[in-house]
Design a protein around this nucleic acid. Sequence first.
DNA 1: ATACCGACCTGTCAGC
DNA 2: TGCTGACAGGTCGGTA
Length: 264
Amino acid sequence: MPELPEVETIARGVDERLRGDRIETTWFSEKPEPFKSPPQLMAKELAGRSIDRVHRVGKHIVFDLGDLQWIVHLGMTGRLLVADPRTAIPPHTHAILHLASGRELRFVDARRFGRMALETTRFAGTGQEPLKISKDEFAALFRPRKTSIKAALLNQKLLHGVGNIYADESLFRAGIRPRRMARHLKRAEFDRLHSSLQSVLKKAISLGGSSVSDYVDSAGVEGFFQLEHRVYLRTGQPCLVCGTPIRRIVVGGRGTHYCPHCQR
DNA sequence: ATACCGACCTGTCAGC
DNA sequence: TGCTGACAGGTCGGTA
């Protein structure tokens, strides 16, 4: 589910509404998967903490809580919802923070690929920020890779935050086939990819992310960038530029969509 | 260092 | 009406 634009949208929404609020008590489900830190420890450490700031690092949502950080990764289907306690608790709710303002922050995740943990050192993520990296750094990061450019874009140790949608969409806009070996790309192609990736991510953030099946922001509102997808999940449909049917292949175990005419 | 695969989970949809 | 298989915004670990 959520990639950089969706996580950014959620983090901004949670920050706007919960900054300055205080966590009073917590509840965690019995399912073990979502908790990298033991739930009892999180319950003890989170209670009484004020929320100084909420922001995004890669695909992670980071809560600054004094000398502690609470890190949430949403996996494929995770949601963070700011809710009125009188509203029904949705199925697959795995964590609830009860706040001093009377509201609740709920973590809901059907597939349970999401994770949460406490950090005592400043969380830096796994790679570089796609919206901050320069053209020179971008080319230097990817050129040595002995793998396809698509697999390299998905590698969170290089750039963090890019997932399947925005990898496919940025490669389309740069006119580069997903299976091309990273080390065979020309400098002009790295530059086009850098530019298309940043513009796609910024546009998606401005539209509140992509709602393909079930993504919503922290207020339960869907995004609109799915209306701007040119290849992702458009298998067999005509390319919006040239009319050639969009093709689906598997690269790095992920469904990969591209236009065989526009991407070389 | 990389490639490939299955595993982890649930839900949805197409096809029979 | 069901069943089965494929697929879905992600990541990890094992084995070549």
